[in-house]
Design a protein around this nucleic acid. Structure first.
Lengths: 200, 200
DNA sequence: TGTATAATTAGATAGCTATCTAATTATACA
DNA sequence: TGTATAATTAGATAGCTATCTAATTATACA
């Protein structure tokens, strides 16, 4: 991706406005129906000037528009597209970071539940789930490269403190091979013989 | 959309990390290849501790991972999915806010160039583009409702200070009708007779 | 074992922003 | 015309965060 400086500035402006708990809640409220400033302030438990300020931020991005009625000013979402924008963001925030498009549904769910914010929360006890996690971990290494044990440990420790168990499992379940304290990743379809041929 | 409080918190955390010029630039750099902390600091023209701090923020979201090599630590994107995530966000930030899925390509482009951040940057001189903009503006009013002139002006002023010209054009090009200083939107397929029948 | 390089951690700070209260503006209505 | 209600604007401030320098940690290599 080649983003120009201008694009980055525009995106930062956009994200900065969105990256606020109360403004997201306002957008959430407005997906249902229009609301006056007073209503919004009451719902968020903030004073009216604060609500007014947030709404002006959102208006600056063109996300909301105003309808005046007496002394009230009803704010509403500018377009339904925003609806899906928010929904998408929510889903992506949780999932996209972790998902691999090649993964099956089972693999996807397993990884989603065992890997949170880049950490392995627990080494799965159940064999099928363990295999999914080991496959995922093995993909942190490149096929064709050779890794000293210390480096394997360091990489695994990023995910879980018990790198020794993970390292042993990776070898036992044939995701990685080992010789003279040097490790390498086994390609899914490679045979032990092939792997040995390329060992250091 | 019904977002739980937890979902909102997760999304805010995610957006807060992304809503930073330097972190976006780092992600941009990492879409091309892995980089050391030193390289990133040099590119962004900040000191190494600052670069390190940004990378830790990104790591906290699981967006990047580390490969150690000697005293260097090379950071790389965690997955290609992020690539498309960023690209999407960029496009959306620009376009989605404004776009209407029903619009033709021409309408989409015209609106994208004339309406920036919810403001009409200029009243188009060319007839076809003017019509697109007028259609868009007319959609700010509900069919079946009647609007006093002051309210029409206020709504139009949100887009451009010269509300008088816009109001006149809306009537001249038959997007809206007017009687006794009250305005209403004409449905695309309604005839002048129909419109008069429902006038107040 | 000592020196150099890279990175991180600790601690300080400038600048930004979400919030508040008080004042002002705008509208409705008696 | 005066009063009440809603919203915005003005001005102040607490709290957060991106940044820096200095100190520490980790690794490579002579």
């Amino acid at each position: 991706m080649k983003a120009t400086e201008e694009e980055i500035e525009a995106l930062v402006d956009f994200l900065k406005v969105l990256a606020d708990r109360n403004r997201l809640r306002i957008l959430g409220m407005l997906t249902e129906r229009e609301h006056s400033v007073k209503e919004i302030a009451a719902s968020l438990n903030i004073k009216e000037p604060s609500a007014s300020w947030h709404l002006q931020q959102l208006k600056g991005l063109g996300l909301v528009e105003i309808r005046a009625e007496g002394t009230n000013r009803f704010y509403r979402l500018r377009q339904e597209g925003i609806h899906s924008l928010l929904k998408d963001l929510l889903q992506r925030a949780e999932a996209e970071v972790i998902e691999d498009p090649n993964n099956s549904e089972f693999e996807r769910k397993t990884l989603a539940s065992f890997i949170k914010k880049g950490k392995l929360v627990e080494i799965p006890a159940r064999r099928p789930k363990l295999l999914v996690v080991l496959k995922f971990l093995s993909e942190r290494f490149r096929v064709g490269e050779f890794y000293p044990e210390a480096q394997v440990n360091e990489t695994l420790k990023e995910f879980h403190p018990d790198c020794a168990t993970l390292r042993r499992d990776l070898v036992d379940f044939r995701f990685m091979a080992r010789k003279n304290n040097v490790y390498w990743r086994i390609e899914p379809d490679s045979t032990p013989e092939n792997a040995l041929e390329t060992s250091p």
